[in-house]
Design a protein around this nucleic acid. Structure first.
Length: 288
DNA sequence: TACCAGGTTCCGA
DNA sequence: TCGGAACATGGT
C-alpha cells in the first residue's frame, strides 16, 4: 500500500500598528513590482513566497503561511522604528519635505531578495513602472514554477536555474528590449558563481556600490536601489529623473550630474537618506 | 506624433 | 575626464 502525505498549510496573520505601516504606499512607491490588487487587498510575491496584505482599522495586516511569518516580518522591516526617520524629515522645516513625510509616513523600506532586486532594477532603467511590472510578471508566468496560495495557483520568480535557461530572445519577448543582454549576462555570472551577492553584504558603502557597478547594466542609480531595497543600506540615495526634478524645482539646485545630486542629499540626510528619498519620490509622483 | 520613463554604455574630443 | 548619442518600447 502506498502512503501519501499531504502538506497542511497553516495560515497566520501578522498585525502591526498602522502609524508607520501603510501597505498601499509601501508597495506602490516604486521599490516593488510584484503585487496585484484583489478587492482592495494586495497579493504580493517575493521569490516563491506569497502573502495577502492590507490595512484594516488600526492595523496593517499580513496573511501568509506560518512557515513564512519570519520571512515577511523581516521583508517589511518590522523591527525598525520609523518614527525617527519621519521626524528627521519634518525637522528640516522645508515645505516639500514636510508634505512628503506626511504623505509617506507609512512607507517602509522592504528587505527584498538580492538576486530578484538586482534583476528587477536592471530592467527598470530608462523604463516606466507599469512596463517594469508587466515584464517581471511575464517572466514569472512563463518561466517560474507554480505555487499554490490560498487555493489559487500563481508563479514564483524564476530561480537562478530557470533564469539561466531563458534565452535573450525570450527576455526580449518579455519586453526587456536592450536590457535583455544585461540580464542574460548577470544570470550567467550568478549561475557560474562568478558573482556572490550574499558575500557583498559585509562590504562598506563605497565597496558595495563599486562591486555592484562592475556588473554590466548596473550604474550608480541601479546600484543604489539594490543597496537600499535589498541590502537595507538606508544611507543610499538613488537619483532618477524624478529626484532630479525635485533637486532643481524644490531645492533650488542647478542642473548637474546625478552623482553630485546623490552626494548633496546624502550629506543632508545622512543615515536616513534612503527613506527620505522614498518620501520625496512618492510625493512627487503622486501629488506634485 | 512626440516625449517620457526609478539609466547605462560607448565613443569621440 | 566629460558630454552626448544610441539603445527598445509601451504609456501618456
Amino acid at each position: 500500500m502506498e502512503l501519501t502525505f499531504a502538506k497542511f498549510l497553516v495560515m497566520e496573520k501578522i498585525l502591526f500598528d498602522k502609524t508607520y505601516f501603510n501597505v498601499k504606499d509601501t508597495l506602490t512607491c516604486g521599490q516593488f513590482f510584484a503585487y496585484e490588487v484583489i478587492e482592495d487587498k494586495f497579493l504580493i510575491r517575493s521569490l516563491d513566497k506569497f502573502a495577502l496584505c492590507y490595512n484594516q482599522g488600526d492595523y496593517a495586516i499580513i496573511e501568509c503561511e506560518s512557515e513564512n511569518v519570519e520571512y515577511f516580518f523581516n521583508f517589511f522591516d518590522l523591527k525598525r522604528d520609523y518614527s525617527s526617520c519621519y521626524e528627521k524629515a519634518i525637522s528640516f522645516n522645508v515645505p516639500i519635505l514636510t508634505k512628503s513625510a506626511n504623505l509617506g509616513r507609512g512607507i517602509r523600506i522592504l528587505k527584498q531578495d538580492k538576486y530578484e532586486t538586482l534583476i528587477n532594477f536592471i530592467i527598470s532603467q530608462n523604463n516606466n513602472i507599469p512596463r517594469i511590472t508587466k515584464s517581471i510578471k511575464y517572466l514569472c508566468d512563463n518561466f517560474g514554477r507554480e505555487v499554490k496560495f490560498m487555493g489559487k495557483t500563481y508563479h514564483a520568480f524564476p530561480s537562478l536555474y530557470e533564469l539561466k535557461s531563458i534565452s535573450c530572445e525570450d527576455f526580449k519577448n518579455a519586453g526587456l528590449g536592450y536590457r535583455a543582454e544585461y540580464v542574460c549576462e548577470v544570470a550567467n555570472l550568478l549561475f557560474n558563481n562568478k558573482l556572490d551577492l550574499d558575500y557583498f553584504a559585509d562590504l562598506g558603502y563605497n565597496e558595495l556600490e563599486r562591486e555592484l557597478m562592475y556588473i554590466k547594466g548596473v550604474g550608480q542609480k541601479v546600484a543604489n536601489c539594490v543597496m537600499l531595497f535589498a541590502y537595507s543600506r538606508f544611507d543610499a540615495f538613488p537619483v532618477d529623473t524624478w529626484i532630479e526634478k525635485i533637486y532643481i524645482q524644490d531645492f533650488a539646485g542647478t542642473p548637474t550630474t546625478r552623482d553630485k545630486i546623490t552626494n548633496y542629499f546624502i550629506s543632508l540626510f545622512g543615515q536616513d537618506s534612503g527613506i527620505i528619498q522614498q518620501y520625496l519620490f512618492h510625493y512627487k509622483r503622486n501629488l506634485d
